[in-house]
Design a protein around this nucleic acid. Sequence first.
DNA 1: GTAGATGCAAAAGCTTTGCATGGGT
DNA 2: ACCCATGCAAAGCTTTTGCATCTAC
Lengths: 154, 154
Amino acid sequence: MGTSKAHIKAPPGFKEKLEILHDYLTAHGLRNTHQREVILAELLSFGQHVTTEELWDRVKAIDSSIGYATVYRTLRLFTECGIASKHDFGGGSARFESDSGHHHDHMICTQCGKIIEFENEEIERLQDEVAASHQFKINSHRMELYGLCSECHD
Amino acid sequence: MGTSKAHIKAPPGFKEKLEILHDYLTAHGLRNTHQREVILAELLSFGQHVTTEELWDRVKAIDSSIGYATVYRTLRLFTECGIASKHDFGGGSARFESDSGHHHDHMICTQCGKIIEFENEEIERLQDEVAASHQFKINSHRMELYGLCSECHD
DNA sequence: GTAGATGCAAAAGCTTTGCATGGGT
DNA sequence: ACCCATGCAAAGCTTTTGCATCTAC
């Protein structure tokens, strides 16, 4: 009988990310599995910053046999191969998002939890400048603005 | 027999911070204690971003009867009355620093752990600008640059 | 067939809290 | 005296990991 595994509906960007994943797996002697594809698909279709547990809930709806540890380990794998990144916005749990390629920062509404993404080249430039003035070599940075979104004030 | 408690050597800024603390305690019907003064003094004299446990170690050296929970609760108190602030630079434990009054951000060397503080008004202005363009009201922000300090590269 | 992947459950870390006791005011 | 503060130990939570079993290659 064919692989009667749960069907994976491909969300936008799935194909590209899957290719990156496959390349990474091959290059490192790792294996592709059904679980990894399901988790990737759900991460992409979630479309928001998601915690390991939230993602696990969605993944279980597709394949109830997938365990929490697999989601946890797979998210770390995704982070390592550059198709997702991990953030800590406070509130106990780490949150993951699929990488869109271009860097961006976040505004977090402390009232409703909404997360707005933005990018600002001028700020990035100034960061580089500040770092350079301290002979500091930036590898990564985080910048988060906490406050109230337009719907939560006035 | 006066109060033969361990002597507290006043580090720079101790008097001012202590006053803020006392005012806060009075205003909220709370009490001043020897523990709180020791912890404040050690926080100030540490002079670097410190974890609860690291601070506890130093505090115990002054008064070995002080418990971890007291340090923990006192740091939260300090945060509430605005004489200290809490940061999460990753690595498991939260880190505290005494507030210097003027806002600043951090560069963290991922090799040696050194933390360099800096401030940049231009960046702050741009942050306000970005927030305004999204009708977002900033309450606080964090900005951290991760990489290698001058002593850890080349 | 073999080395990596998975699921379960337990271990690890920090953080936070309940409670009896001690101590400011 | 009253009520907050403290110390100790236990509970909570999320993150990690050990291990037997399963599976992609």
